[in-house]
Write a protein that binds this DNA or RNA. Structure first.
Length: 953
RNA sequence: GCCCGGAUGGUGGAAUUGGUAGACACGACGGACUUAAAAUCCGUUGGCCCGAACGGGCCGUGCGGGUUCAAGUCCCGCUCCGGGUACCA
């Protein structure tokens, strides 16, 4: 074929390029083949070691995927493919966390059933995911909103409802065992995790006002169904309790703390009040210590482990009692991590909500106290925390007696003491605690000195090496030594008891929403009954809003009373219910008889590698650990940590572009000229900008208000935009969508490029400028196998030593880097390999066939094509991972950099087999050494074999 | 405030156990091809200095010290940036 005209020349270039690396045809071909052959179906098998790689499953939002989403998926897919080629039996599933708020809000606005929009979003996600060539076994897909899935979420809830936590055996046990115990001995002689408040309330209601936490077998047997149910709620792992929530009457729902801003709802700006509501709760606190301890056994990042440790917030210390003067028998219970500083305690501070406050407040202080309480109640917990931190508080007029000195201690209330932590009361030691010190200063309270050499006017001393004084028996001791003695001594004299406290609180498990799992609960005579044996399907409702009377949306359902009790539970479960166990369902996704067959979970075991964002540190990752431990306790699975190793990918940031509008005009100034004018910076859609230069016509067409825009251009006659790296977001017009890039460069290029951007864990800017380099690499790879006309170059000759060395060097580097999960450096190792092989004109099958296997995890489509061209057996997906041969790597000479006093002066080439002695002799006899030394005698000659020579002196 | 990260060319980043800092890319600049442009290919590209050139020198991994034959890497003291987060008793 001959081309003569310019147009024909252009066409020739175009066609040649298309033939050269026709990624569209290649990718379409292999996508179809993989689907037809069910290439990625995983089965249990005993001849191979299993490897379970998992992504955090996505919530299918209406916006579709942007380039940030696939980052983690590509990384896990690379490992899944690598492990498969290494001979592992890989489980690599994907699914959807498909219950959630956005679909519900959309439903409220449009009336469309959330199931419909969810289904639509899922198919969009699936389309986008399929384009990227992931090796997911889609036959195992799970969706949390599928009744076949959520019936097992409901079933696990049922098990949590039916179990409590026995501290003697340190595991969950059936509540029926506890009932048996109650029938025989009441609640004495057992140590099950208990909600003290819930128990006290139930006791007072059913056993009389004198109830102090203990009941006999007789008491128990005398209780009616309601009474028994109420008492058991204090022990169940899933239980009903009154808990304080942010309630928004206008929206008819509970809001999370971060949905409340300044006492108003984030959406709509309606007033929010703090209100006690009956809610389903999860007794995760029973597992606090186990959740803390087994962090040691898992390979997660230090930062995320630290987040979990802080969240659990274990602190050890003692519980102390202070008797209240003029209130016979009334004591205030206090938790302190520093009972060694007891001698320095000069006043008590209670949370404003502390139940004793109204009782002990004196008549003279009552008005002031109540005013302070009202003020506190009107502020959300978040505001209390975010306040200006100036000390506020109010004296109750009452005094407590110091347990050692007997001195009176004024009792104050202040909002820096939280009702929900510890006992809601603290003993203030102003000399040893900065907040107490500030409080004492602000209100002129006593600051007893208890540390040697401490000036109490300058602030608190929190150093544990400080030496105590004015502290009786502990005088002269450093605090760290006095602390255990104080706990021991105070306990022996009955003034205190050792105590471990956790910051972790039980989790609220109810939502007043529609699009979530219904509870398998109905009420009979107000007693909750578990419904077993089948799914409780989400009923149809006429609107996705609360009822007129403020009941959750499910109360609108007609004829839904499937169990013929008085009524169903109208709350639904929170988003984290389904995501707490989904990794188990993948192992046995279609089982109609169990959440997951024990043999299957034994076979696949823990997730070996879990990849996802770090933003779930205290939510999903804590709850799924909790549920896994619970299921382990019930012997339903054989491991108690779900995710053996986890990597958290960093956020991908967008590169935004800006135009500069002259104030009050429709004239836009190029970046270089912007300072000469008064300008306003505006985001401009990045699709209108190429290499920072604005497409002027495109800009005018972008929005009507810019149709008659004028431009002040730079000296090249172009309009240069400004840029900034920030979070990827629709409103910043900097969203990059993977579909466009797949269209332009192909999935293999996108996969390689996302990995090439930098270390996976790191937040990094998305900048497509570099993508052409990666695309060029794949073209170059392709050119090793065939010429510009698409004809094969592969032959069966003997490869040169350089070619073999390049190949084996690449195999070694790629293998080692994949083993240490260094995804980005693998790409550059492959580039180097391809560059060197191109240089060496290597077209031998014995080089190119392993090369195809080597690139397959990153660029599976082109790898399949090239593997096929080489005549490889079957799919490259199962191509054995190439091994490097150290002999092929050996160079005949070693080049030593020669340093003089640490500065490199020249290179010395020596035979590879030279001993350090030979090398030293060679370097010392070198002319250049003599020249550097200028007659001096070196003090020392250091030869690091294979690395470097340093001559000192 | 506390906790966890991080800081390396114009840019993204590499340097795995202390052993040639800047791999691999992008961008930029110069050149080839082309009527031209695009594409492609080749070359240069941390800064400063000496030299006509071959070549050579000095400085350089946020800042200030230190350890070492040798420090981006280890130690001490800071600065700045990112993320998380508790008035947690």
């Amino acid at each position: 074929m001959h081309f003569h005209t310019p147009l024909q020349g252009y066409l020739r270039g175009h066609i040649a390029r298309a033939m050269e690396y026709d990624f569209k045809a290649i990718e379409a071909k292999w996508r179809a083949r993989w689907t037809a052959d069910a290439t990625y179906t995983a089965e249990e098998r005993d001849d191979k070691t299993k490897y379970y790689v998992l992504d955090m499953f996505p919530y299918p939002s209406g916006a579709g995927l942007h380039v940030g989403h696939p980052l983690g998926y590509i990384a896990s897919d690379v490992i899944a493919r690598y492990k498969r080629q290494c001979g592992f039996n890989v489980l690599h599933p994907q699914g959807y966390d498909s219950f959630g708020l956005p679909a519900e809000q959309y439903a409220i606005q449009t009336g469309q059933h959330p199931a419909v929009t969810t289904e639509r979003n899922i198919s969009r996600y699936r389309q986008q995911l399929d384009l990227l060539g992931f090796s997911y076994d889609w036959s195992r897909e799970v969706r949390t909103s599928d009744p076949e899935y959520y019936r097992w979420t409901q079933w696990i809830f049922g098990r949590l409802f039916e179990h409590g936590y026995n501290r003697f055996s340190d595991k969950a046990e059936p509540i029926s065992a506890l009932i048996l115990h109650f029938e025989n001995q009441g609640n004495a002689g057992q140590d099950w995790a208990v909600g003290e408040d819930t128990l006290a309330e139930a006791g007072h209601r059913h056993l009389g006002p004198d109830f102090i936490g203990e009941f006999t077998a007789e008491d128990w047997n005398g209780l009616d169904a309601q009474g028994k149910s109420d008492v058991l709620m204090a022990y169940r792992l899933a239980y009903l309790a009154d808990s304080e929530v942010n309630w928004c009457p206008a929206l008819g729902t509970v809001l999370a703390n971060d949905e409340v801003i300044g006492g108003l709802s984030e959406r709509g700006g309606h007033p929010v009040v703090r209100k006690k509501m009956r809610q389903w709760m999860m007794r995760i606190t029973a597992y606090a210590d186990r959740l803390l301890e087994s962090l040691e056994d898992i390979d997660w990042s230090d930062s995320i482990k630290e987040v979990q440790r802080n969240w659990i917030g274990r602190s050890t210390g003692a519980q102390l009692w202070f008797s209240v003067e003029r209130h016979e028998g009334q004591t205030i219970e206090v938790f302190s991590t520093r009972p060694d500083t007891l001698h320095g305690a000069s006043f008590l501070v209670l949370a404003p909500e502390h139940p004793l406050v109204s009782e002990i407040t004196t008549a003279g202080q009552r008005d002031a106290v109540e005013a302070y309480q009202t003020e506190t109640a009107s502020r959300s917990e978040r505001e209390r925390m975010a306040g200006d931190r100036g000390a506020t508080g109010c004296f109750t007029g009452a005094h407590a007696k110091h347990p050692l000195s007997g001195k009176p201690m004024p009792i104050w209330i202040a909002d820096y003491v939280l009702a929900g932590y510890g006992t809601g009361a603290v003993m203030a030691v102003p000399a040893g605690d900065q907040r107490d010190w500030e409080f004492a200063k602000a209100f002129g309270l006593d600051i007893p000195a208890i540390f040697e050499g401490h000036n109490t006017d300058e602030g608190a001393l929190t150093d544990k090496d400080a030496v105590l004084c004015n502290s009786g028996d502990w005088n002269g001791m450093p605090c760290h030594a006095a602390l255990p003695l104080s706990i021991d001594g105070l306990s022996k004299s009955g003034l205190a008891t050792p105590k471990v406290n956790h910051r972790l609180r039980d989790a609220v498990f109810s939502r007043q929403r529609y699009w979530g799992e219904p509870f398998p609960i109905c009420y009979v005579d107000n007693v909750p009954q578990l419904i077993e044996g089948h799914a409780i399907l989400l009923p149809e409702v006429d609107a996705y809003l609360p009822t007129e009377t403020g009941e959750p949306p499910l109360a609108r359902a007609e004829n839904w009373n499937v169990n013929h009790g008085d009524r169903m539970e109208y709350n639904t479960m929170p988003g984290w219910a389904g995501s707490s166990w989904y990794f188990l369902r993948y192992m046995d996704p279609h089982n109609p008889d169990a959440f997951c067959d024990r043999a299957k979970s034994d076979h696949w075991g823990q997730v070996d590698l879990y990849i996802g964002g770090a933003e779930h540190g205290t939510g999903h990752l804590l709850y799924s650990r909790f549920w896994t431990k619970f299921l382990f306790d019930l012997d339903l699975i054989g491991f108690e940590e779900p995710f053996a190793k986890m990597v958290n990918q960093g956020m991908i940031l967008g590169r935004s572009s800006f135009v500069y509008r002259q104030e009050g005009s429709n004239t836009f100034v190029s970046f270089e000229e912007r300072k000469a004018h008064r300008t306003q910076r505006l985001h401009v859609d990045i699709s209108l900008v190429k290499n920072d230069m604005l497409d002027l016509d495109g800009f005018r067409a972008w929005r009507p208000e810019f149709a008659d825009a004028e431009f002040i251009l730079n000296e090249n006659g172009e309009y240069r935009c400004g840029s900034e790296v920030e979070k990827m977001s629709k409103s910043k017009f900097n969203v990059e969508n993977p579909d466009d890039l797949v269209e332009r460069y192909g999935a293999d290029t996108l996969r390689c490029y996302e990995m090439f951007l930098g270390p996976l864990e790191q937040a990094k800017p998305w900048d497509t400028q570099g993508i052409s380099g990666v695309h060029g690499f794949l073209r170059k790879l392709n050119r090793l196998y065939r010429n510009a006309d698409g004809e094969t170059l592969i032959h069966d000759g003997e490869p040169s030593a350089e070619a073999e060395r390049a190949l084996h060097k690449a195999i070694k580097k790629v293998t080692e880097d994949l083993e240490r999960l260094s995804w980005n450096t693998v790409v550059s190792a492959l580039m180097i390999g391809v560059n060197e092989l191109t240089e060496a004109k290597a077209h031998e099958r014995s080089v190119l066939q392993p090369l195809a296997a080597l690139v397959a995890p990153y660029a599976p489509h082109i790898a399949e094509e090239l593997w096929e061209m080489c005549g490889g057996n079957g799919s490259v997906v199962d191509a054995e991972w190439p091994q490097w041969n150290p002999e092929k790597l050996v160079e005949s000479e070693v080049n030593y950099p020669v340093q003089f006093n640490g500065k490199v002066r020249f290179q010395l080439s020596t035979p590879a087999d030279a001993s350090p002695k030979d090398v030293e002799a060679a370097v010392m006899s070198d002319d250049r050494t003599a020249q550097q030394l200028q007659g001096r005698t070196p003090k020392k000659v250091i030869v690091v074999p294979g690395r470097i020579i340093n001559i000192v002196g």
